[in-house]
Amino acid sequence: MAKTILIIDDDPVVVKYLSNLFQDNGYETLAAASAREGMDVLKGTVPDLMTLDLEMPGGWGAQFYRQVTKEERLKDIPVIVISGVAGRHAIKKAVAYMAKPFDPDKLVAIVRKTIGD
């Protein structure tokens, strides 16, 4: 079964970009435009990986991550930070930090290394 990636970013253009990129590489995708939407998605499912923007309406990405990892079933989801703000240390447990604009091949390589095909 294909692995699922949850994309959290408030910019619909970025969401569309990442969705297509991941789908073209054989992953399924879910998307959320805010921290609140992200929590809603996570109520029903546990994705294999999350990409997270740090700066979003309704909450700072790092706060959202802390809230997510409080739940036992969610605490081990690998996270890749994709952001325009310098926040390399905002989420210490993040698998990778990609600064916008990012290199799509590099991103896919990291995803593949983290969760496999």
Binding site: D11, K16, Y17, N20, G84, V85
Partner: peptide
């Protein structure tokens, strides 16, 4: 900051076009 966002969007558009 805005330019970074715009460039990412432009990358996205070009990716969709290429794909």
């Amino acid at each position: 900051h805005a330019i970074k966002g715009l460039l990412t969007g432009l990358d996205g558009g070009m990716y969709l076009l290429g794909a």
